[in-house]
Design a protein around this nucleic acid. Structure first.
Length: 324
DNA sequence: AATGAAACCTGACAGC
DNA sequence: TGCTGTCAGGTTTCAT
């Protein structure tokens, strides 16, 4: 269901809510469809792991996990009485830093202790990858909260809350990756790619530009809504062959894609049907759509009725006057 | 090799 | 109220 801006919004929401928390146990539903790794592998990897960071890669949500030394494990019927202390966080202590004396020098050091910097210096022990497909949702809730239909995974957190994965249509996917293999979906991030590189992605391709934009092996994260909106803003028809687009037009498209994605992220994504972020809040970008979902309505620029055609099995919306 | 269509599923909604 | 048909923001697979 969600595209880059929605996944980004969800990942940010989750990061603020579950970063630093520890997954104590995992419950998996009976439906194996959403699992790309084996149930055993997923449970073994997630249980007793600390969530070091939550971030977005393409349309995937990536949980960076650090193994937590188990505090007290009943070893073969024998319970260890002495509860070992939770190992101190893997962060260097500010006081151990020779220069951490004055306030001014302490501050930046503490600022360095963020998840982002931690993962930069030390790769995570494992990664949990969630793709939401069309209808997947990740919610953080109290254990008492009613278990929604189509709940496929529940992670019990040390904080007492639960992280749940719900997906009615089961197009979503869950997998785990152990360091050092790591997760790489291919493609480049549209918000990071240079104009040169962007243009090179599409040169010589005979496929319609819309199909190329949706190809996650080229550009990762752009989906149907933002492809249509980007093409409208750059005046290019969805069916145009990628190879037939000039460098200059591709440059315009490069800027349009990034502009649309940035605006959508700023507004918390597009809420169509039941999309909500990790806090249950709806996004607002759907009010900014200029072509998507506006078949028959007047173009906001020239008044021509917006057309809808099916391309590669997906609805494509465009203005026949503004887009050539 | 590359492109397009079909398939994977369930739920919501419109029309009868 | 209930049936049928259509559509859905994604990805993979299978024919051309």
């Amino acid at each position: 269901m969600p595209e880059l801006p929605e996944v980004e919004t969800i990942a940010r929401g989750l990061a603020t809510r579950v970063s630093g928390d520890v997954i104590e146990s995992i419950w998996l539903g009976s439906k194996p469809e959403p699992l790309k790794s084996s149930a055993l592998e997923i449970a073994a990897t997630l249980e007793h792991s600390r969530i070091a960071a939550v971030r977005r890669v393409g349309k995937h949500i990536v949980f960076d996990l650090d193994r937590v030394e188990r505090a007290s494990v009943p070893a073969k019927g024998r319970r260890s009485k002495t509860r070992r202390k939770e190992p101190a966080a893997r962060l260097p202590r500010p006081s151990s830093t020779p220069h951490a004396v004055g306030e001014k020098s302490v501050r930046p050091i503490q600022a360095n202790l963020t998840q982002a910097n931690l993962t930069q210096t030390k790769p995570p022990d494992a990664q949990w990858i969630v793709h939401l497909g069309m209808t997947g949702r990740l919610v953080v809730c109290e254990p008492a909260a009613e278990i929604a239909k189509h709940t496929h995974l529940i992670a019990k957190l040390a904080s007492g809350r639960e992280l749940r994965f719900i997906d009615p249509r089961m197009f979503g996917k869950l997998s785990v990756h152990l360091h050092p293999v790591g997760f790489d979906p291919g493609g480049v991030e549209p918000l990071e790619v240079s104009e040169q590189r962007f243009i090179a992605l599409f040169r010589g391709r005979k496929t319609p530009i819309k199909s190329a934009l949706l190809n996650q092996k080229l550009l990762r994260g752009v989906g149907n809504i933002y492809a249509d909106e980007s093409l409208f803003r750059s005046g290019i028809r969805p069916r145009r062959r990628a190879a037939a687009i000039t460098r200059q037009q591709l440059g315009t498209l490069h800027r349009a894609v990034r502009e649309v994605l940035r605006e959508a992220i700023a507004l918390g994504g597009s809420s169509i049907s039941d999309y909500v972020d990790a806090d249950g809040e709806e996004g607002f970008f759907q009010f900014q759509h200029r072509v998507y979902g506006r078949e028959g309505e007047p173009c906001l620029v020239c008044g021509t009725a917006i057309r809808r055609v099916v391309l590669a099995g997906r609805s494509s919306h465009y203005c026949a006057n503004c887009q050539k």
